[in-house]
Simulated assay, not measured.
Amino acid sequence: MIKAISLFSGAGGMDVGFKNAGVDVVLANEIDLNAANTFVANHPDTKMIVGDINDNLHNFWDYTDIDLVFGGPPCQGFSVIGKMDPNDERSQLIWSFLKVVEIVRPKAFVMENVKSLATINKWKGVREEYIKRAKELGYGCVPFVINAAEYGTPQKRERVFFIGIKDDTDFEEAIWNQIFSQRRKAPTVRQLFSDLGPAGTDRNPQTCNAKITFAVKPVMRRIPYDCLMFNGIGCPIDPDGYSRTITASMGGNMMLIVDDVFLHDPTADNWIQGYYDKLVSHEIIPEFKEAPPRLRRLTINEARRLQTFPDDYIFCGSKTSVYKQIGNAVPCEMAKTVATAVVKYITVD
């Protein structure tokens, strides 16, 4: 079996995917205590090192018989929705990832991050330097950008996976072929949540009563589910489509909004569409001073499913911490897709 080390493990979403692809994760590292506790609760056979990766590099010298190193260093420094500060301490952690690769010398590595690290000109120098340093360590390295919605995850979440293969520079086509072969249609949000029931019921406890407010200056687009109409830049979820990217701050200005009535009764009036139509036609809508109770934030159980965690996955910490852990995770099915492709490639006779 492929043996691996997990870095920046968080709650373990990436680990679920890699384990489901046949990978034995023997060691993990996470700095956040709540996330580490969640990881241990669900992956008891994996040794967890809690703390800053840079303070624990010495621990990796005992693990030199490793096939794979994977993980998702914090992405806020590279994200287009963040400050995009190259001096952000979190931006430096991609190099810490490579330090572990240098120590362990695995057959392959997989580093996940935001799409912008692979696509925008601002980060061209960073990605070229990353590929250069990987090459100096003896690894061909290629960034692969994929959309979670094309691989069984009902979420429009694009991410880059920098894949490195030891002593190999000619693997890009083969890996893409393995990834493409796993394309599958994700269920819609309505299908995904149908058996959970409305928020507040037994299978779907109401885990957040955060107030829904209307954006003072809504950002209008072609369809209502692309508009930013709530809580500053909050966006409604299309029940018959896919969610936008879940973030770690699901309760902040970027919260995703659910119409609980329309979600569980497709014959009911579509309140979001009606509100959108009135905004587009510039109607005076004094009755919309406060959001109706049918509009709400995602529950923990719904967020868990959108990230394709198993329903019985245990989360530790406060509700705020749990939302953060779920939002920070790599969707399990997305991770499994990449892991399957890499494992098949490095195990070919």
Score class of each variant (00 low, 15 high):
Phe60His: 01
Asn177Ser: 07
Val16Phe: 11
Lys319Ala: 03
Gly234Ile: 07
Glu283Ile: 06
Tyr63His: 15
Pro310Phe: 02
Pro86Ala: 06
Val25Tyr: 00
Met14Cys: 10
Arg203Asn: 15
Ile31Gly: 00
Val104Ala: 00
Val348Cys: 13
Asn270Pro: 06
Leu256Ala: 06
Ile257Val: 13
Cys316Trp: 12
Ile223Ala: 13
Cys332Trp: 08
Asp312Pro: 05
Arg304Ser: 04
Tyr242Asp: 02
Gly12Leu: 00
Gln76Phe: 04
Val258Pro: 02
Lys166Ile: 09
Lys166His: 13
Asp226Ile: 05
Cys227Phe: 03
Pro74Gln: 07
Pro224Lys: 01
Pro239Thr: 07
Trp271Leu: 15
Leu279Asp: 02
Ile300Glu: 03
Pro292Lys: 06
Thr245Ala: 14
Lys336Tyr: 09
Lys132Asp: 14
Ala329Tyr: 03
Thr245Gln: 05
Phe214Gln: 07
Val50Arg: 01
Ile165Gln: 02
Glu136Ile: 07
Arg203His: 13
Gly51Lys: 03
Arg183Tyr: 08
His264Asn: 13
Ser281Asp: 12
Phe288Ala: 13
Asp24Asn: 14
Asn113Ile: 06
Pro218Tyr: 04
Val23Gly: 01
Ser91Lys: 04
Leu27Gln: 04
Trp176Leu: 06
His43Arg: 09
Cys316Phe: 11
Met220Gly: 09
Gly274Glu: 14
Cys235Phe: 04
Trp95Lys: 00
Ala268Phe: 10
Gln273Ala: 08
Asn177Thr: 10
Ser91Gly: 12
Cys75Val: 09
Val16Asn: 04
Ile81Arg: 06
Asp85Glu: 09
Phe161Asp: 02
Leu279Gln: 00
Gly72Leu: 07
Ile246Asn: 06
Ile165Leu: 05
Gly274Thr: 11
Pro236Gln: 02
Phe70Glu: 01
